[in-house]
Design a protein around this nucleic acid. Structure first.
Lengths: 249, 249
DNA sequence: GGTTGTGAACAAATTCACAGCG
DNA sequence: CGCTGTGAATTTGTTCACAACC
């Protein structure tokens, strides 16, 4: 369940405050969820609470860390050392929490050999060797959208079964692998969607209402920057809110 | 619905390939979802398809962009100019897609005045003025966890109702505001959780799925690396293949 | 013929509510 | 008595399947 890490973090805060015991009620409040949900989620790990009392913070933390696989390191390889990839490799939040950056990889020969945040960038072709040597457990895709699937395939082929994808593209992996995605422009679009609905009349229904009843087959030019002459490949050149999230590698 | 941006992106790709018409079946395949879901989602926007034919890419794009609020810019303020904040402000993906970075803000006086990616860092106290002057629509929180809630409060107070939170903390906002979060360590923990489940039974620690939940009242030391050989209890072996390792909604 | 749009069936997730235990 | 753990009820989301339509 994807909420466990949130509980974990909350419990760590509690531990830092020397609080040794917590009820599902209070934990729920701190984690921003419903109390029954907390109990269901925790009981999924086993019966680690005490009726009439609550949960022992320390003990629960221990069980949870074990369950989340936090008792060992999971070395990470970052593929695609553009803006985002470089930022990620420089971002301390990885290593601190048990996910040390083990290697940086890029397909661009001009990037290979450069040293970033203490790591020498290696070529994408070295992936299998790096994975084997360094025991890489997680692959981070920080390439442009159009190479994301290929990179994922190569990660899988190299034996990496956990992938975190920052590229704004749909990538698929075999069922035995896990994939999570982080897409900045997607989040922003969701936000502006809600905001739009607020400001524009009332909801979708209201929008239907102001729709012309007849069927407008021909469409007005989509806002700014229509450029039907651009080269194919990447960068759909039209309409605001294009594919985004990553950087030239 | 949070899938609309994915369809949007797919449609943009199609447009770039000069494909003018698409069936829900094909669109579903490209977006990595079920065809019926695509139709339900799209019908939520209105009846923009043609039976027996499919959807007109251009027209659907136009309607969708409008619905997602992509016909106008949504200026962004980034709060917290540390590693991550600086990386984000330097990251082109915002402005290109209709989310121009309008201002950078930090609470640290030593950061105020510095110029990053063409923006002079302003003090957090200037937030209300900046929001009013620049028409800021979205606030990005890139501060440490312990100040995230306060920053959110100040954003709301300044009139920003859309917030994207990168800080690893639970922040709450009034119901009229929207909040999205991006949490890297959370994603990594989810990945290692699945991975852990897979490989449970091997590894240095003999945490096999044997269960007898003896009385686990005594708390073992949660210190990193501690490996109590006979830790009792283990997650119920239930729901074997249930939790798939793929992208949830 | 083919494909959308949608009610109905189904599945999953969430919440309720309470028995059972400390 | 208070709080956990969990079946049952409810809500939410997904998929099916087919009538309506081009």
């Amino acid at each position: 369940m994807a909420r466990l890490p949130v509980y974990l973090r909350t419990l760590l805060d509690l531990q830092a405050e020397r609080i040794s015991n917590i009820s599902s009620e209070r934990l729920a409040e701190l984690a921003g969820v419903n109390a029954a949900k907390v109990r269901k989620d925790l009981s999924f790990l086993g019966s680690y609470g005490t009726r009439g009392v609550g949960y022992d913070v320390e003990y629960l933390l221990f069980q949870m860390s074990r369950e989340l696989g936090l008792t060992k390191d999971w070395p990470v390889v970052i593929v695609g050392i553009g803006n985002l990839g470089a930022a990620l490799s420089n971002y301390g939040g990885f290593g601190d929490r048990g996910y040390p950056v083990a290697a940086l990889v890029d397909a661009d020969p001009s990037k290979v050999g450069r040293v970033i945040s203490g790591h020498t960038v290696r070529h994408l072709d070295d992936l299998p060797d790096l994975v084997a040597e360094l025991g890489v457990a997680i692959g981070v895709i920080a390439t442009p959208a159009d190479t994301a699937q290929e990179v994922a395939d190569r990660l899988i082929a190299a034996g990496v079964t956990s992938i975190l994808n920052f590229a704004p593209a749909v990538v698929s992996v075999p069922p035995e692998a896990s994939l999570r995605k982080v897409d900045l422009s997607l989040e922003l679009q969701i936000l502006s969607f809600y905001r739009q609905r607020e400001t524009a009349g009332e909801g979708i229904e209201g929008l239907d209402a102001l729709e012309p009843p007849e069927i407008p087959r021909v469409v007005a030019a989509p806002a700014p920057g229509s450029a039907p002459g651009t080269t194919p490949g990447d960068a759909p050149g039209t309409t605001p809110g294009t594919v985004a999230g990553s950087v030239p590698a």
